[in-house]
Nucleic acid binder design. Structure first.
Length: 283
DNA sequence: AGGAAGACCTGTATGC
DNA sequence: TGCATACAGGTCTTCC
């Protein structure tokens, strides 16, 4: 599921129910997800107060008053459900436990946060607050695409001489952290760059144009997610999935949305992932 | 060393 | 209905 905008939407949805609140009980219902959970995770979470929620790339980081930070990654299929809390006009009773509910956190005040992840590619970990940049999952990440370190000069220099397709380069979290398959497809469409073009053979001007386009694509999706936190879609208490229309992603065979284009969206497979693009617009 | 597969899992849609 | 296959919004590990 989640790329940066979805993760940011989950973070924003969790903020009002978690920040400043104490975890009364942590129900850890299996040994781990993609990797084993850290030792005694339930005990280390129970009784802790959440001081704040941050995001780095697709990771949600919760700073606790115990001196530790809890890390959460949603993988491909991770979902977060809130129940027992009054959020705006909605109040969600606790639902019956579902298959693949792996971790359930109960907070003071009655709110419950449930992590559900059928494919179990997600992850949770605990580390000493302040050492996050050393964490193995975070240390090699590139700059945040919405931050100042991600700029035209950086991207041009970073992709110089690279022989890999631009699609693969933008999916590489060491180049820029937080993009996934959907938003890379969308950004390349807006930049009119063919996903199979070798990154190092694209003009600097076109590479540079990707920087504001990537920011736009992500900011628009975050805005759509933000509105989903307020509309009826959040009535089920689930965070992170929201209505969003894509221009090329998952639109194989449908007409290109560029005015006058008349092209049909195509799909190719690049290193095992689908790339959607318009063969007429993108070169 | 860079770049491409393979691996990890379950669920869903599709075709025969 | 049953079964096989393909595919899914991620990313670490292995192989060339």
């Amino acid at each position: 599921m989640p790329e940066l905008p979805e993760v940011e939407t989950v973070r924003r949805g969790l903020e009002p129910v978690m920040t400043g609140k104490r975890i009364l009980n942590a129900d850890v219902r299996r040994e781990g997800l993609r990797w084993p959970f850290p030792e005694r995770m339930a005990e280390r979470l129970t009784g802790a107060r959440v001081l704040g929620l941050r995001r780095r790339s697709k990771y949600i980081l919760g700073d606790l008053d115990t001196g530790e930070t809890v890390l959460l990654h949603l993988g491909m299929s991770g979902r977060v459900l809130i129940s027992g809390a009054q959020i705006g006009e909605f109040h969600h009773a606790h639902p019956a436990p579902e298959k693949h509910d792996h971790v359930v956190l109960d907070f003071e005040g009655g709110a419950r946060v449930t992590l559900n992840d059928p494919r179990r590619f997600g992850a949770m970990d605990l580390f000493t607050t302040g050492t996050g940049e050393l964490h193995p999952l975070i240390a090699a990440l590139g700059p945040e695409p919405l931050g100042n370190a991600f700029n035209e000069e950086y991207l041009v220099a970073r992709l110089k001489g690279r022989n890999t397709p631009i699609k693969s380069a933008l999916l590489d979290q060491r180049v820029v952290a937080g993009l996934g398959n959907i938003y890379v497809c969308e950004a390349l469409y807006r930049a009119r760059i063919h996903p199979a073009r070798k990154a190092g053979r694209i003009s600097s001007a076109r590479i540079a144009s990707l920087v504001p386009i990537i920011r736009d694509v992500l900011n628009e999706a975050i805005a759509a997610g933000g509105s989903s936190l307020r509309d009826y879609r959040q009535a089920d208490g689930e965070l992170g999935y929201f209505q969003h229309t894509f221009r090329v992603y998952d639109r194989e065979g449908h007409p290109c949305k560029t005015p006058e284009c008349q092209g049909k969206i195509a799909r190719i497979v690049q290193s095992g992932r689908s790339s959607f693009y318009c063969p007429r617009c993108q070169r």
